[in-house]
């Protein structure tokens, strides 16, 4: 079976984890078998799925959905064992920790191990869809480029054999999609534009889409000319809406997710966004 991969990135604070959770929930509702992975240990994905304590081993969250997080030391042990074929690493546990120190300082090794885990889950073919809550846009480049960097740096060694299939899955437009989440505001839009340009130039990922989050609905009325809360709220809304629309015009936005007024738990936010994803497909 051929799994698909959705990598969700975006500038910090745009709601990337909520959108990643929504993709997982929407796919589950379609009856797909889904794995959701938080690529940042201790990130926000778990809370949005109603399971704040994610572990390295995927754990079921209701029918058809499992979720996990990437603990780097464990990912490294699994990586060496399963992919590089170095057995019995448990017996050299301290060495694995030391190796992690190296991996966290040496360029690209850490990223290869992290994204390697995600791609391995795709390669195994036991899921219909793997959704990864990935690094923010500021760092996503070093993950997407990690396999290529390793290929350029390493002349020999077993890690070389691994990076080839990683690059293949990443760059396959039928399997891998990078979703860039943005807000309709200046800084996130500019950062998204820069990321799109970089991704298109490097040709590392199969396909790319832009999702705008917290988009206000149109006011659907004239702003009244009198004083008072009705007019004030209308004037603020209209100004913010116009501002948002102007920034949205800069990007090829595939989907707009609504601004959710008032207090919601992270799990409620993800379910609401999943509703919108479901309607749009």
């Amino acid at each position: 079976m051929s799994s698909r991969l959705v990598l969700v990135s975006g500038k910090g604070g745009v709601g990337k984890s909520a959108v990643a959770a929504a993709y997982a929930l929407a796919a589950r509702r379609r009856g797909e078998r889904v794995l959701a992975i938080d690529m940042l240990d201790g990130g926000g994905l778990g809370a949005h799925l109603g399971e704040p304590d994610l572990a390295f081993q995927p754990r079921p969250i209701g029918e058809g959905l499992e979720a996990s997080t990437i603990d780097r030391a464990e990912a490294l042990i699994e990586y060496l064992r399963v992919q590089v074929g170095i057995p019995a690493l448990a017996t050299i546990g301290p060495a694995a920790r030391a190796f992690d120190t190296l991996a966290s300082t040496a360029p690209a090794i850490r990223e290869v191990v992290t994204i390697g885990k995600v791609l391995w889950e795709v390669k195994r073919g036991v899921w219909d869809l793997v959704v990864a809550d990935a690094a923010p846009t500021g760092q996503i480049g070093s993950y997407l480029r990690a396999a290529r960097t390793v290929r350029e740096l390493v002349a020999s060694g077993r890690i070389l054999d691994q990076v080839e299939w990683m690059e293949q899955i990443l760059s396959d437009p039928d399997r891998t999609r990078l979703v860039l989440v943005t807000l309709p505001e200046e800084l996130p839009v500019v950062e998204t534009e820069e990321t799109i340009a970089w991704v298109e130039a490097e040709q590392l990922v199969g396909s790319l889409s832009v999702v705008a989050n917290r988009v206000l609905p149109p006011l659907d009325a004239e702003v009244p000319g009198r004083d008072g809360p009705v007019a004030e709220a209308a004037a603020l809304h209209q100004s913010l809406w116009e501002e948002q629309q102007q920034w949205l015009g800069h990007l090829p936005v595939e989907l707009a997710l609504p601004y959710l007024f008032g207090t919601h738990t992270p799990a409620e936010v993800a379910e609401r966004l999943a509703d919108v994803l479901e309607e749009s497909s």
């Binding site: 060496l80 590089v84 170095i86 050299i92 060495a95 030391a98 190796f99 190296l102 300082t105 040496a106 090794i109 740096l153 390493v154 002349a155 020999s156 060694g157 077993r158 890690i159 070389l160």
Partner: peptide
């Protein structure tokens, strides 16, 4: 350091030495 032997297998020895020199 057994871990150095391990690192060599995975990364190739040359890489490790270059990194160490850098540091």
């Amino acid at each position: 350091k057994p871990v150095l032997r391990l690192a060599d297998q995975v990364l190739g020895s040359n890489l490790l030495e270059r990194i160490a020199e850098f540091f």
